[in-house]
Design a protein around this nucleic acid. Sequence first.
DNA 1: TACACCACCCAAAGT
DNA 2: TCTTATGGGTGGTGTA
Length: 562
Amino acid sequence: MGIKGIYGEIGAGERIALAKLATDKFVETGRPLRIAVDISIWQFQVQCGKGGSNPALRTLYYRFLRLLSLSIQPLFVFDGAHKPPFKRDRRTRTTTYSLPNFLTKQLLQLFGFPFVVAPGEAEAECALLQREGIVDAVLSEDVDTLMFGCERSMRNWSSESVRGDAATHVSVYDASKIAAGASGLDREGMVLVALMSGGDYIPAGVPGCGIKVACEAARAGFGKSLFSLSKTDAAGFRAWRGNLAHELHSNDSKYFRVKHKSLQLPETFPNQEVLGYYTHPVISSAERVERLKNELHWDREVDIPSLRVFVAEAFEWQYKSGAIKFIRGLAPALLVWKLRTRGAAATVHEGVVSSKTGEERVVRSLCGRRTHFSNDGIPEVRIEHVPIDIVGLNLDTEEQENRPVDAFGVEACPPLEHEVVEDDGVPTTLTTNGKRSIYDPTKPQRVWIGEPYVRVGVPLMFRDWEESLRNKSRSKSESASAKTARKGQKKQRAVNGGMKAGALDPFVKVMKPGMGLDRAGAVSGVAQPPPLLSEPLSPTSSKAKGRVPEKTRQPIQQINHN
DNA sequence: TACACCACCCAAAGT
DNA sequence: TCTTATGGGTGGTGTA
Ligand SMILES: [Mg+2]
């Protein structure tokens, strides 16, 4: 549904990078950000995908990969059977050209993402999941969840740059902030606005009443008083409606900017059925909620072999070339997951978590640190890894592609421009501008990863790395001290990357009684993880014009693997 | 001048 | 038969 013009009242929301929301939550609580995702947010966006087979599903696939890379734990919510009958669903045809439900659920399963089918509407269920603390926030297509009591709602997961590249940011709405803001809209107020000014599918709205007048009525408290009425209190409803009509027509209490003589409240206003839909939506029972709290498994592994088969069939990513596409997308996402969850594999010896947590199996080296504007300046580290080792596929077992040849032995179906081909044994992607980008999954590749995920457990690699940084900055500042002091300070900060000298120790987490490793592999029972930075990060303002230079670019530093 | 309402356009991203 | 059909943004128009 979505109330027309609502963002003119409650504001455009706070534009925040998902990566920042995720790492902030992780640093604060030791577990990943959990969100309920109304699956219908994709229903139209993904249809823009073109080319290849199942482009809509493929777009969904890339969003799932992104969620994995962000270390966000999503819980997907589908619409259920008991959607309110008045809700618009005026399809003239029975066939639907949207995402095939079965394939979507299958894909979710292969990614290890949990999903539920709501009893009624997904939005209402999402709000419940958030209020119950099962998730931290809801991602849906509008802010309607606020009318179901959701406290933190997100929408519009999209790019922030003008060029419109990768989708990084969401618009975040806090119910408490909205209520305290200029609009003063709370849940009850928003429902009143929906009922009065409501769209095509809310029957018996008030004709000629738009969002402005409805908001004035909400600020006057008509939403609150409406919610306090008992369903059976017919006299109460009549009195409520009479009061509202009187104020609209006379403006005696000066609730409104001007009188609204011509507005007529329909006899059936407010529609009981619609009101009940907001006050008592069809949602999961307390028992079902409790079961979810106890049984939900947030960190299921990606089913790599099955997913390989899935993409081969659904996207026609067959053969070695298809496998390379598969690896290229999956490796960075899996790497983050492996780093974050590797704490679970750590051994505890004499109260200290062992440093043998497996990072040496997936990380070749650390080769940089940055705070980049596209992620709202969260600290990231650059990790060199070998994609094929992360994903663990054997390229040689992939079926050999046999392109048809004509009678002269000439390839009848040469590869399309964008296809991955073998070029002297090197997998090469042909792009439309004639360039060739080389991606070899057996060769080391680099990827930026949120620093907190790399620091799970006791990453031994940081010791060598930071030690070398300290040495470097010492010698640099010594040599620079003869020059401008201010410049020298700047230099040191740049080299140090904002890392506090001696900040190493806090990352060696000492196990104490009552602590444990949760399913995410993070040490639980830690009151407050140490700050990762000694100073504020680079601009978080998404409106910052132009590129913010990367704070640091460290030279490649090999880990001592032994 | 503020507001409601309407018609129209757009959405993803290594294909 | 614009295959179907959403929310949101924008710019134009009518009205009190
Ligand atoms: Mg909605």
